[in-house]
Design a protein around this nucleic acid. Structure first.
Length: 475
DNA sequence: CGCATTTGACCGGCGC
DNA sequence: GCGCCGGTCAAATGCG
């Protein structure tokens, strides 16, 4: 009980710190966001040039909260009422869908609630749900958790009444397990049916009550499956994967209607999430010609486990462009390549530069898959900052955006957090992809409509301090 | 000696 | 009801 109380206190401290950071970020955002009387988010959104060359920071008036772009740092909750409302609206009106979706970058950590609400509100699940349960019950038992109906899990229980969502990572790896920064204790090993390689079971060692588990099938491709979320503070190096997996799980929850349909990229579904900057978006609007600049993760449902599959095994993104699906034949193929700063946690990954190809494939338990055309590639390097990764494509158009000193100065102050760096890269990338405003544009040769976006920092020192550049390719 | 891993037993869900 | 299978437990074993 003492340990639980200590954990509780730590969590409260962490939460208060997060809230503090949020308010600070909010202040900064208010100071750099230009005022606009247009009613919708999309119309309210400045062009990149306007945005980056906005009025001097102190002169900017405070923008109404309803007009703000929501900045997401990767903690989406499936029960966000606003999002539910928006989702319902989408079903009625596809145009309205893009009004918010285009710039839904969202700081969706339930900050519209008071801090006390965050602790009390059952909708604040994902990272908090398990610790909340600890508070209420005193202990946490993984096996029991599957049986215990929790209000915070109502949504997922409705659709997957038995199992928690899982996040499965496929990666080529030399070692028996991937080094994701967490400490794992092996507690079992089984020979799985139809697989000559044993499946190992691991449990987080930091806290005895931490529900995160994984099994690994050690083949040429290591498949690591995460279930549950850490309910204790994580090291910086562990946060990357934890954030990614928890966000993927949250995305699965919020977009579980998609997974349940198997191929169900319905024309009305809309979810988005941010995996430590890997910005996922399962928004689909097949009736509009506006391309989505977000890739979709692989979503499958194995038995009653809804699973997001992050495939890190495919080195060549362009090869996936060959994948086709009649489902998306009316849309341009989209790929995004982001380089993420890395945390030492990824250093044990086998490849020099591990490309995370988040294919839009629906993996089934039996290995069958259905693919769509969108996919995402990301690289994890052992460097302190995100760095540019120029994707070479013969038929791309290049679009260059020069970040002005003003936005860079404003960004410096809020870009210290590595998670934010990743989120920022994804946010700006999506921003550019959706606004398409006053951007310098060099048309490349060829008839392909592919576009290659680059962010440049005018001064090297600025780049170093902000620590992120990003490239974006739209085929 | 303490901790991590191994491994057979056990349990519960699921399909037939 | 029975058997299969995935997942977990816990005693035995190994290792530093």
């Amino acid at each position: 009980m003492d340990a639980v109380r200590e954990d509780n206190e730590r969590l409260k401290l962490t939460l208060s710190q997060i809230l503090k950071d949020y308010h600070s970020l909010k202040k900064h955002f208010h100071s750099i966001a230009p005022q606009d009387d247009e009613p919708t988010v999309q119309k309210n959104t400045p062009t990149p040039t306007e945005f980056f060359q906005g009025a001097s920071l102190p002169d900017l008036p405070v923008v109404e909260e309803s007009k703000l772009v929501s900045l997401s740092l990767g903690r989406f909750s499936s029960v966000d009422e606003k999002r539910e409302e928006r989702r319902n609206n989408i079903e009625k009106n596809h145009e309205e869908h893009y009004k918010f979706d285009g710039l839904e970058l969202g700081l969706d950590c339930k900050f519209h609630l008071g801090s006390s609400d965050v602790m009390k509100n059952p909708s604040t699940e994902n990272r908090l749900d398990d610790s909340k349960e600890d508070e209420q019950n005193g202990t946490w038992t993984p096996s029991k958790s599957l049986k215990t109906k929790r209000s915070g899990d109502d949504e997922i229980l409705q659709q997957n009444p038995l199992k928690k969502p899982r996040v499965s990572i496929r990666a080529t790896c030399d070692t028996q397990t991937i080094n994701d920064g967490c400490q794992w204790r092996k507690y079992g090993q089984k020979i799985a049916k139809a697989n000559p390689c044993p499946r190992a079971y691991y449990r987080c060692t930091v806290s005895s009550s931490c529900p995160v588990q994984r099994c690994a099938e050690d083949m040429s491709v290591l498949i690591t499956t995460y279930e549950g979320t850490h309910n204790h503070p994580l090291s910086v190096s562990a946060k990357a994967m934890a954030s990614a997996t928890s966000a993927a799980a949250a995305m699965l929850k919020s977009g579980s209607s998609i997974s349940q349909q198997g191929l169900g990229f319905s024309a009305t579904s809309s979810t988005s999430t941010n995996l430590h900057g890997l910005n996922f978006n399962s928004t689909n609007n097949l009736t509009t010609s506006q391309p989505s600049y977000f890739p979709r993760p692989s979503i499958s449902s194995s038995q009653s486990h809804p699973t997001v599959v992050l495939d890190l095994t495919t080195p060549n993104i362009s090869s996936h462009n060959k994948l086709s699906s009649s489902l998306f034949s009316d849309r341009p193929s989209t790929s995004t390549c982001l380089n993420f700063s890395s945390t030492p946690s990824f250093s044990s990954f086998n490849s020099h530069t591990l490309k995370a190809s988040l294919n839009n494939e629906f993996h089934t338990r039996s290995g069958a898959l259905f693919n769509s055309r969108n996919h995402m590639g990301a690289s994890y390097n052992s460097q302190p900052y995100i760095h540019s990764n120029v994707q070479t494509s013969p038929e791309v158009q290049n679009m260059h955006v020069h970040v002005t000193d003003k936005i860079a100065a404003a960004t410096k102050a809020i870009a210290r957090d590595p998670t934010f760096q990743s989120a920022l890269a994804a946010a700006i990338t999506s921003f550019l992809g959706n606004s398409g405003g006053n951007v310098q544009e060099n048309h490349g040769s060829g008839g392909n409509s592919g576009q290659n976006f680059h962010l440049y920092f005018p001064q090297q020192s600025m780049k170093d301090e902000i620590g992120c550049t990003t490239s974006f390719i739209n085929h």
